[in-house]
């Protein structure tokens, strides 16, 4: 299993290289660069020259590409031009916030989705099944950013019970007891994680329902039922484990989807995470910051798929990584 993990990570290296190269030359081809914001039409040419040289932008693109790759190999992401501090620090500030949000969403998505799917499959063709199917299709087809706005409207304005922006209460947080502070943080997580996770939860429920229905038709389930086992034991103990396999496959594919959603949800809820950072970096054409963001994103996807692969082995003992 350990060698398998190493092999998978080694296979990710060409992928990382491809992504970084693609994005670097995409930025190079685009008009303007990150130093544009320092200039006005009246800036004297020698000042322009000095600023461009300071950031190393006077060298040809291929040279800068080489320098960047060498630095990256040494673990140096460079300095952000728009924020004028090390990219590593900026990313380190934003990444945990996004991870908290996405991991919480991921847990909620899969719990809710799997439970709903089991309920639907166990009562196939009932009114409950039909109602939940329509409901999950409704949420599956919903734009996440629109749901975020509606949640803000409902729970922030019409029935103001939950905070709708930021990670902590900007005024009161410092005056709270530690337990109140924890509650404050949790309350700020509720709406963003719902907005982020609802459509994925709906899709998990759809997969879970059909996957469980397929397993329930098999002979060993009929045997278990014939033994006189109660239905909940048959479904939860015998059928569930096999039905979970396809869910784990899509678990790995949920991460990029969550990051896409985070771009919108984080800007709506003023959540200082990677999604907002990427938007800012792209709009300011800050090459080192954009490269670092895409590096992290690709790593998230690779690790997500790897975790899904390893979980597969936990659920399905037939699979061995040799």
């Amino acid at each position: 299993m350990f060698t398998y993990t190493l092999k998978k990570l080694a296979m990710a290296l060409p992928l990382l290289w491809g992504v970084i190269t693609l994005i670097f030359f995409l930025i190079e081809l685009s008009p303007g660069d990150a130093t544009d914001r320092f200039f006005t039409p009246e800036t004297p040419p020698e000042v322009r020259q000095a600023i461009t040289e300071k950031w190393g932008l006077d060298k040809p693109a291929v040279t800068r590409y080489g320098i960047m790759m060498v630095n990256l190999l040494q673990g140096d992401f460079g300095r952000s031009i728009s924020q004028e501090r090390p990219v590593f620090d900026i990313v380190l500030d934003a990444l945990p916030n996004t991870l908290v949000l996405s991991l919480l969403s991921l847990v909620v998505i899969n719990l809710v989705g799997v439970v709903l799917g089991i309920i639907q499959a166990a009562r196939q063709y009932s009114a409950l099944d039909g109602g939940l199917s329509v409901l999950s299709l409704f949420f599956y087809s919903m734009p996440g950013f629109w749901l975020a706005l509606v949640l803000q409207l409902v729970f922030g304005l019409w029935w103001p019970v939950l905070p709708t922006s930021g990670m902590i209460d900007p005024v009161m947080h410092d005056f709270m007891t530690p337990s109140q502070q924890t509650w404050d943080k949790l309350a700020h997580l509720v709406l963003p994680s719902i907005a982020l996770g609802v459509s994925s939860a709906a899709s998990v429920a759809r997969y879970m329902r059909s996957s469980l229905l397929e397993v329930i038709r098999q002979d060993y389930i009929r045997t278990a039922k014939a033994k006189g086992l109660p239905e909940y034991v048959v479904v939860l103990k015998h059928a569930l484990r096999n039905a979970l396999l396809p869910i784990i496959t899509i678990l790995g594919m949920q991460l990029p989807f969550l990051v896409s959603g985070a771009v919108l949800v984080e800007s709506i809820f003023a959540w200082p995470g990677m999604g907002r950072l990427i938007v800012q970096a792209i709009f300011s054409q800050d090459t080192p910051l954009i490269i670092a963001c895409f590096f992290i994103l690709t790593m998230l996807v690779v690790v997500g798929n790897l975790v899904a692969d390893l979980l597969y082995a936990v659920v399905d003992p037939r699979i061995r990584f040799e």
Binding site: L15, G18, V19, L22, I23, L26, I27, L29, S30, P31, G32, P256, F257, V259, S260, V263, L264, I278, V279, I282, F283, Q285, I290, F294, L297, T298, V301, V302
Partner: peptide, 22 residues
Amino acid sequence: DLLLALPRLVLLLAIVGLFRSA
């Protein structure tokens, strides 16, 4: 694999965002 590793919206954001002045 490479294009699937990048979330589509983020890739679109990069392309349209970087070339919006062009």
